[in-house]
Design a protein around this nucleic acid. Structure first.
Lengths: 189, 189
DNA sequence: CGCTGAAAGCTAATGGTATTAGCTTTCTGG
DNA sequence: CCAGAAAGCTAATACCATTAGCTTTCAGCG
């Protein structure tokens, strides 16, 4: 019987594909093993268990998101950058609904790779806000607002939480525009 | 052997308590049955299964949230109302972390009770925005932004997604304040 | 070229969860 | 008081995750 030639990275990559296909909550070791053409316990040669898989998946996705946000922000500033990053984030989530859920797991403080990826993703937003003249506590607050609004919008949209017929794209654009306005006039209160 | 005297409502209520104690993802029929002093299959006399329980729990929680938001908004308007409702929402989530997750399930279009509760919760926000002179599409967009921002903030906070030492309460107040400013100057773009 | 050991893969066994079937017991209403 | 509806039970089935222990493959080294 030939070997499948798996590696931890290959397992996690396939888990990402599977999560997008069937949903994060239906990402199961049994289904993953089947997909990889391997018996379920064989996975344990590459991952420590289901929880470890979820952790590794969070690292992968956070890294991917950080890359996309950084790329989207490159060469832009102000409202332009804000819109590009927000849109890139939302489109990533629409393209990869399973992955997106996986990324919600907070980094283990002892995992430098995960911490670095999260830092990079948040840093892309933080940098844009510097362009608005926001620094220190104000920049932290503004970054948190951006993350909350965009993440909240994405999850509500994905959950089907926006029932009314009004186009969701336009509501998103309006929100980003309102954020831009808020950042222009940001003041310590 | 005496009867436990369960009802569907009693089962759902206990599920809510259990979810808050152990987390929504660890809310299991086995644990729930144990808590109610009953064998697991006995639950099927009151709920159709795990999915049905989750649905009923979502209805209960959405109703509770609608009540709290309505109460918080009563007798207030403008930024005052905005802050009261946002804070009530966040505090509900902190008090009931398991319930809060349960409420993220969108209503089944064929479930009038669930739809009505969700309508009532959203309506509390919508009414406040009318006080800002927002109607029609603008009010829909503004309501969606409010929900996204507050919901996103709550979930990020609950997930431990805010790593920096800056106090989270202050970031939340700043966000609500920024929303107030955005609504004052809202314009179609 | 063959041997050897690490590691990839397997089967089997265990324990947890949800679900269904079918039986027993308890209330309640006529 | 008794008859039936419904609450509760046990047993059986089917997933899923995990651990233990065995077999096989492959790569490196003499």
């Amino acid at each position: 019987m030939p070997r499948a030639g798996l590696t931890p990275a290959a397992v996690v990559r396939e888990a990402a594909v599977l999560a997008d296909e069937v949903g994060y909550d239906r990402l199961t070791l049994a289904a993953l093993a089947g997909r990889l053409g391997v018996a379920l316990p064989s996975l344990y040669k590459h991952i420590k268990g289901a929880d470890d898989l979820h952790r590794k998946l969070a690292v992968l996705v956070t890294t991917e998101v950080a890359d996309e946000l950084t790329t989207a922000a490159a060469g832009r500033a102000g409202g332009d950058a804000l819109c590009a990053v927000a849109t890139a984030f939302r489109e990533y989530a629409r393209r990869h609904p399973g992955r997106y859920v996986a990324a919600q797991r907070a980094p283990d403080p002892a995992d430098p790779e995960h911490l670095a990826a999260a830092e990079r993703a948040v840093g892309a937003v933080y940098a844009i806000l510097r362009g608005y003249g926001l620094t220190g506590d104000a920049a932290v607050d503004a970054t948190r607002m951006f993350r909350a609004a965009v993440h909240g919008f994405i999850t509500l949209e994905a959950a089907g939480g926006f029932g009314l017929p009004r186009e969701i794209d336009r509501s998103f654009d309006q929100m980003v525009s309102a954020l831009d306005t808020a950042y222009r006039g940001w003041r310590s209160r």
